[in-house]
Simulated assay, not measured.
Amino acid sequence: NGNIVFHGRIDDQIKIRGFRVELGEIESKLADEPGVAQAAVVLRSDDGIERLVAFVVPEPGVAVDGPALRAALREKLPDTTFLITSRVLLNLPGERDFAVAPLPTPEPDTAIPEMEKFASTALFCDRANLQIGQVNAPAIGAICRRLDGIPLALELAAARAKVLSPNQILERLSTHPDFLQSRERGVPERHRTLRATIEWSVDLLPTEVRNFFARLCVFRGSFSLEGAENVCAPGLCESWEALDLLEQLRSHSLLQVLETPGGTRYRLLEMLREWGENALNASEWESLRARHLTYFTALVCENQDVISLLENGALLRAENANFRAALSYGMQLDEVQLTLC
Rank of each mutant, 00 (worst) to 15 (best):
L269R: 15
L246R: 00
A161Y: 09
L205A: 09
C217I: 00
R273F: 09
A282T: 15
Q256H: 06
E241D: 00
L245S: 07
S182L: 12
L180D: 01
C217D: 09
S165I: 03
I169E: 04
R192L: 14
R273T: 05
G227S: 14
Q248S: 05
A158D: 02
G276Q: 04
L225P: 01
P206S: 06
P188R: 07
A282S: 14
E199C: 03
L280D: 09
L268P: 06
L164W: 14
G221N: 08
C217Y: 00
T197K: 07
A279S: 11
P234D: 08
L164D: 10
S174W: 12
L194H: 04
I198F: 14
L249Q: 03
P177Q: 06
G263R: 05
T207G: 14
P166D: 02
A282H: 12
P188W: 02
E199A: 12
L152A: 05
G262N: 03
S222F: 02
L243Y: 08
P206T: 00
Y266R: 05
R265I: 04
T197I: 01
W240T: 09
S224Y: 00
H176S: 08
C237F: 04
P234G: 05
S251N: 15
D148N: 12
L216I: 10
L243V: 07
R210G: 13
A279C: 10
G221C: 08
V187D: 07
H191Q: 12
P234Q: 10
L152C: 03
R195F: 07
E199G: 06
N281S: 09
E277A: 05
L152I: 01
R190A: 12
I150L: 14
V218L: 09
R273P: 05
H252A: 11
V202K: 05
W275H: 13
Q181P: 02
M271Q: 15
R265T: 02
F179L: 02
S174D: 13
K162C: 02
G149V: 02
L216A: 09
L156A: 00
L173T: 07
F219G: 03
R273Q: 10
F179P: 00
S201R: 06
E274D: 15
L280F: 12
G262Q: 01
S283D: 14
D203K: 10
A158E: 04
L255T: 03
P234F: 11
L280V: 01
F213R: 06
K162E: 10
E241I: 01
V163E: 08
L204I: 09
C217N: 08
F212H: 05
L269N: 15
T197S: 09
R220Y: 04
F212K: 05
A282C: 08
H191S: 15
A158M: 04
S165L: 12
P261A: 07
L258E: 12
E270D: 14
T260L: 11
N230L: 15
G235C: 11
E274W: 10
A157I: 03
P206Q: 07
L173Q: 07
N167G: 13
P188N: 10
V202H: 04
G221D: 07
V257F: 01
Q181T: 06
F223Y: 02
M271G: 13
L205C: 08
E184F: 08
R267C: 12
D203E: 11
